[in-house]
Design a protein around this nucleic acid. Structure first.
Length: 211
DNA sequence: GACCAGGCACATC
DNA sequence: GATGTGCATGGT
């Protein structure tokens, strides 16, 4: 499986090239984006982030002080805005209570322990937690999302009811080069999923992996 | 108008 | 542990 996964990576990289993920100007922006993009197109999440950025609100202190109602209205384009406002606040409450509002402090914690802490925040599930760890804090954790599952399933690399942890372990046990590779690999899987592995179709057509 | 998009919590069996 | 539902905008 190690060889298989490395071969897939090589094919994806040579076909698509580097993806430059995560598109953001700061670690905090990555975290905000990770929550805003939950079950939502990145384009819509971006509009919400832009609304915050325009008002210089993309830092923990400012966002923490913003009322839930105001926050919700600003992130409206991302959809689920009431729930997501609450989720952003839940993360910030955690950040201030446990790490004095500083990402640097949070980043010093042991990766697996921090992962457990993030998962205990209401509104942060496995994908959001791992996106934060990998893309905001540079921790060697593989991110699994809907595209990852779909691509792997289409190519029969997992069984159709494989759990999040199973899929994540598949990558983490078989790949070296950790952080940089994990970032690029996940981004490439999303790119492939978007362009070739469409939902509601039994098979990928002209899939770069099949050539 | 239907379906989809870089999930998650919660209820229920 | 599996399955169903609410949350909501904007593009195709």
């Amino acid at each position: 499986m190690t060889h298989r996964l490395n071969l897939i990576y090589k094919k994806l990289y040579s076909f698509f090239g580097p993806q430059h993920w995560w598109p953001a100007e700061s670690s905090f922006e990555v975290i905000v984006g990770a929550i805003l993009t939950q079950n939502t197109s990145w384009q819509n999440a971006e509009r919400a982030i832009a609304n915050l950025g325009k008002r210089k609100l993309l830092n923990p202190h400012k966002l923490y002080r913003l009322s839930d109602k105001r926050l919700a209205s600003l992130i409206m384009p991302a959809g689920y805005y009431n729930i997501k406002a609450r989720r952003l606040k839940n993360f910030l409450i955690f950040l201030f209570k446990s790490y004095k509002g500083k990402l640097k402090n949070m980043s010093l914690r042991d990766t697996q322990e921090l992962r457990q802490e993030l998962l205990s925040v209401n509104g942060i599930g496995p994908e959001t937690a791992d996106s934060i760890l990998l893309y905001a804090l540079d921790k060697a954790v593989f991110v699994v999302d809907a595209y990852t599952q779909r691509v792997l399933l289409r190519h029969r690399l997992i069984r159709n009811n494989a759990s999040y942890d199973e899929i994540q372990n598949l990558f983490m046990e078989n790949l070296k080069n950790k952080v940089k590779l994990f970032k690029e690999y996940h981004a490439l899987l999303v790119r492939l999923g978007k362009e070739f592995c469409l939902k509601g179709r039994p098979k990928c057509e002209v899939c770069p992996l099949d050539t």
